[in-house]
């Protein structure tokens, strides 16, 4: 099986993770811009982070045969540092229109403060102006209310519901998101929040349409193999193959390819280590097998 993990923070992961992910069948990832685990102190920190997402991390992933896309946005936690957030927002035009940027995100609410509201709305407007997909991070506390509010505000500003992905859902929030016509993504965390077991039941109950499975693996305790593991559990528990394919691969593509930034044909091809893409004599893809045993050279 092949998998798409449409929410994972690879800057925090090791090359071991990349190897294991490739071996487990993960062919593509989306890395949403988020916070670093500690607050940034100046706008230059955002510049370098965004540049990493569209440059270095993309290259690193390519060394393992994994296509790397990203989203650009100012996250809700750091929206509360108002001066810095304003400066960071000015970087949006510099980074959000780059190749392989599939959405504005992850944005939304954390504590649901006025500062978060302002930064969220500003970015929704940017997405509407540039016809982009939006990836919304839902708050851990007061989740249901936060999700309903993020959908309402997005609708008000003019984000088409089919271009809205609400992430970190659970049993309590999924219906509201599906009713709105948006995509409902689920983060599978080991031990806490959503586990694979609960995900299987959600797919059984709601069907696979517009449901997306992701790992949101980051610098915390998390599992970059959540998507393949959940898929295998679904298989074990008798979920139809087509439903597994939709929730662990195709739905993410359908949602984010609306950005025009995913070359779907290329993604469907066999994975290659793309080390020679820009300086090969006559071919971009050479059909070689992934060299996941090769370290990144420098």
């Amino acid at each position: 099986m092949r998998f798409f993990d449409p929410h994972i923070h690879m800057v925090s992961r090791t090359t071991d993770d990349y190897q294991n992910m490739a071996a487990a069948g993960i062919r593509a990832v989306i890395e949403p811009a988020f916070w670093m685990g500690q607050p940034r102190t100046n706008v230059g920190s955002f510049v370098d982070y965004f540049a990493t997402l569209v440059g270095w991390e993309r290259f690193r992933a390519s060394q393992f045969g994994i296509a790397h896309y990203c989203t650009i946005g100012v996250n809700s936690k750091e929206a509360n540092n108002e001066g810095l957030a304003r400066e960071a927002l000015e970087l949006l035009p510099h980074f959000a229109l780059k190749e392989g940027v599939v959405a504005i995100g992850e944005i939304g609410y954390d504590e649901i403060t006025p500062a978060e509201e302002w930064v969220y709305q500003h970015q929704l407007q940017f997405a509407v102006d540039h016809d982009m997909v939006v990836m919304v991070h839902s708050p851990h506390r007061d989740k249901k209310n936060g999700i309903i509010r993020s959908i309402d505000v997005a609708r008000e500003i003019g984000v088409p519901m089919e271009k809205l992905v609400i992430d970190h859902n659970n049993e309590e929030t999924v219906q509201a998101v599906l009713d709105a016509g948006a995509w409902a993504a689920f983060t599978i965390y080991p031990n806490t929040k959503m586990g694979s077991e609960r995900m299987v039941e959600i797919v059984r109950q709601y069907g696979p349409d517009r449901l997306i499975v992701d790992s949101s693996a980051d610098w915390g305790v998390s599992d970059p193999l959540s998507v393949p593991k959940t898929a295998h559990l679904m298989q074990e528990r008798g979920i139809e193959q087509s439903a597994i394919e939709l929730t662990c691969w195709q739905n993410a593509i359908d949602a984010y390819a609306q950005s025009g930034q995913i070359d779907v044909d290329e993604l469907m091809r066999d994975p290659v280590i793309d080390q020679s893409q820009s300086f090969s004599d006559n071919s971009v893809l050479r059909g070689q097998q992934p060299r996941i045993d090769e370290p990144v050279q420098n």
């Binding site: 510049v47 965004f50 540049a51 569209v54 440059g55 270095w56 993309r58 290259f59 970087l91 510099h94 980074f95 780059k98 190749e99 392989g100 820009s278």
Partner: peptide
């Protein structure tokens, strides 16, 4: 160069 993605940098 400051804001370039991988393809742009090349």
């Amino acid at each position: 160069f400051v804001y370039a993605d991988e393809g742009e940098t090349c």
